[in-house]
Nucleic acid binder design. Structure first.
Length: 300
DNA sequence: CGACCGTACAGTTTCTTGAT
DNA sequence: ATCAAGAAACTGTACGGTCG
């Protein structure tokens, strides 16, 4: 049986005949003519290689094959109707759904706990999965339905993606407490003299700190470059290195925080989603929840 | 005889394919 | 990517056959 050749409408006709016990009555229910029902039944008979209904007097009696099929057929039809209905409505209290995110450690640590806590109250049957994915695969993963949201601190332009800024933060310098070089605070000379941990997903290239320094004709001393913000504190506490982190993350550690001795643009956080999901009610609802939890995610 | 199913045929719609 | 032509599929009308 070639599933690609199956007309799913045939099962709606099958259900109507089974319920009505008559092709004529089924035709009335379906608002088509009796021959159309007869023809649909003929195609279904050929497809399933069974008469499905036999004439007994003035009614059509289902065969054993039809009796076996009716329950799963009705379940499938109900599922289809439910799916179509849910694409136009969304009830978070009853919805059973999973959203896939691709967020870096920083955003996972800051957004996910609040988001999950919020979902526990508003949408108890909605779950979240966060996993790493290369930027180059984001669009194809979204198009395939394997990824719902991608969040990042940099802009990402693609005609297939929608974008919304959901938060911003300021960068601060982080160092161990009682750092011998920072007894009098952090000035530009000290900032440039100390070794730095630079967090970047790229192997090389300038970040916002380096760009700001470059405008002043300065350059910092990069001692370590890593992918994850969360490895920074454990390195800092053992060394005299410093690092520049978003304030809302830096404040969680028992380390010394210093304002940067020069102007740096704030870090902006964006969420991205596929254009095909832009009008999906469940997706729209989740975007609202992200914006809601991110409203507390501001520099202090 | 009335009710209902199945078939033939024709018109319409949808899909496929090839050209641009 | 778009358009047009042909093929295929679907549906409705008319009508014949079957059953109670």
């Amino acid at each position: 049986m070639n599933l690609n050749r199956i007309d799913l409408n045939l099962f709606a006709v099958f259900d109507a005949i089974y319920t009505a016990g008559s092709l004529t009555k089924a035709a009335d229910v379906l608002c088509i003519t009796q021959p159309a029902v007869s023809n649909s039944l003929a195609r279904l008979r050929e497809m399933l290689n069974d008469p499905l209904f036999v004439r007994t007097g003035h009614s059509m009696t289902p065969t054993p094959v039809a009796q076996n099929i009716i329950v799963p057929a009705r379940q499938a039809l109900a599922l289809l109707r439910k799916s179509v209905q849910e694409s136009h409505t969304f009830d978070p209290l009853t919805a059973e759904k999973s959203f896939n995110f691709a967020s870096r450690d920083l955003l996972e640590a800051s957004i996910m706990p609040r988001l999950v806590a919020r979902l526990q109250n508003l949408a108890p049957n909605i779950s979240i999965t966060n996993y790493e994915i290369p930027r180059s695969q984001v669009v194809s993963a979204m198009a395939a339905g394997a990824l719902d949201f991608f969040t990042d601190a940099s802009t990402f332009t693609d005609p297939h993606l929608c974008k919304q800024k959901f938060a911003q933060d300021r960068l601060v310098a982080l160092a161990r407490k009682n750092h011998p070089a920072l007894k009098n605070g952090l000035d530009l000379d000290t900032f440039l003299r100390l070794g730095h941990i630079n967090v970047s997903q790229r192997k090389s290239g300038a970040g916002p700190i380096d760009i700001a320094l470059d405008k002043m004709g300065k350059r910092r001393k990069e001692v370590m470059r890593g992918q994850h913000f969360l490895t920074v504190p454990s390195t800092i506490v053992k060394t005299d290195l410093i690092a520049c982190l978003p304030f809302h993350l830096a404040k969680h550690y028992d380390l010394a925080i210093y304002e940067l001795p020069f102007e740096v643009p704030p870090v902006e956080y964006f969420m991205y989603w596929h254009v095909s999901a832009d009008h999906d009610y469940a997706h729209m609802w989740m975007r609202e929840q992200i914006m809601e939890v991110a409203s507390n995610f501001k520099p202090h």
